[in-house]
Design a protein around this nucleic acid. Structure first.
Lengths: 223, 223
DNA sequence: AGTCATATTATGGTATACCATCATACTGCA
DNA sequence: TGCAGTATGATGGTATACCATAATATGACT
């Protein structure tokens, strides 16, 4: 018998809700790198017990968004220039692999979906709405990875991106990026839609390289 | 003032000790994929409270070694063929990047260190001591990544490797691998030592490709 | 005003209690 | 003998208590 009759259960625990909330708060820079995450204050903020908070902190620690300093408790993970370089380098090799595979195997429906998300990114820039731009960008990349069949790479990619998220708002708002960013993504999309892995790789290298250069500048400025 | 006079403090918590123990137990296949990890039984096994156990499970969940099934509690993460394929693919692109960089910049001291670890791997094979082989292999790769300056990639690599660890014992003990394995690693080491990135990449592709083929076979056999 | 000793508060580490829900065992009846 | 209802045990989710240690505040003395 198929699943049509199966009773669905709510599965969301307080821990899952709190994890999503705290992760989003970190990614939205409501907590700054190096800032202490005091357990009892997080309990007040999130309205849950210390057990839930501690379990959430363990999860974020394993994700690399939180650092535990012995005898000092947790802090929001910091970024140094060297780590930024390495993360963009990883992003480059992963993203190149994915766009090549995508160009080789993507279906027309996913190409259309990519266009939809790219339009949403442009609309976000037009409205100066950074959250809309970031949501559109995440959705665009999720389609890329899923269409390429690379769910493991997507997990690694998201985790790395979360760690450099605080720089991404700089790369997004640097002068002219509202045009060059979507332009570069359009070039990637066109190459993918044309099933041209070499062109997709070239467009990807340009796009990630430019984002990397901007991030390098802003990381150096804030260190 | 330098750190010479600084008083060092013990920083290991019960949680850290328990995390290492449970992770090792999973990697050593004392718990099989799909096996339930019952909290109260882990308390007895590890000799700690449920708080510690739950925090450790959260960490391993974020690392991908444990899956939480709603209303069923945690189980050791399972592996399917598709995930194995993707992990080896990721390993290929990461390892290629690292050996190239290593060939470009490695110092003589680290080349010597790689030789030491490769000798240890050979000795492990000679003694039919799989743990010695795996410790030697981990040490070899840690030197590779560290010499290349790729600590972020090392974290990602170790995490992915942990997930396919259960297959690695198959790849290590397949017929003839005791000779071909170290032989392929020797070829990588020679190319790195000669500062030849192209040769290092070729040797790396051969090595990872062979390990991948064996893992594919054993994953298929156990599904 | 500065320093030092002491008191107090804040904090992370760890254990345990309680509860709701699910799984399993048992009993009674047809 | 099989099935249904009930009881019991197992389990994960969550809260709170307690403790040791570190950080901060305070007061006394010079």
């Amino acid at each position: 018998m198929d699943n049509a009759l199966k009773v669905e259960r709510p599965t969301v625990t307080l821990r899952e809700l709190a994890l999503n909330k705290l992760r989003d708060a970190i990614l939205e820079r409501r907590f700054r790198p190096g800032e202490r995450l005091v357990e009892r204050k997080l309990c007040e903020l999130l309205g849950v017990s210390r057990t839930v908070v501690r379990e959430v902190l363990r999860h974020l620690e394993a994700e690399g968004l939180v650092e535990i300093l012995p005898h000092h408790g947790p802090i929001v993970a910091r970024l140094d220039l060297e780590t930024v370089e390495q993360i963009y380098e990883m992003r480059m090799v992963i993203e190149v692999m994915v766009v090549r595979s995508c160009a080789e195997r993507i279906g027309a429906a996913d190409v259309d979906l990519l266009r939809v998300h790219l339009d949403e990114i442009r609309a976000g820039f037009a409205a100066s709405d950074i959250r809309r731009v970031m949501r559109g960008t995440s959705a665009f990349y999720e389609v890329l990875f899923t269409a390429a069949g690379k769910t493991v790479a997507w997990d690694v990619f998201r985790n790395l991106n979360a760690r450099i998220n605080q720089l991404r708002s700089y790369t997004l708002w640097s002068p002219g990026r509202n045009v060059t960013g979507p332009g570069e993504m359009q070039a990637m999309l066109d190459a993918i839609g044309a099933h041209d892995p070499d062109a997709a790789e070239a467009a990807c290298r340009l796009h990630v390289g430019n984002a990397w250069a901007i991030a390098r500048q802003s990381a150096a400025a804030s260190e």
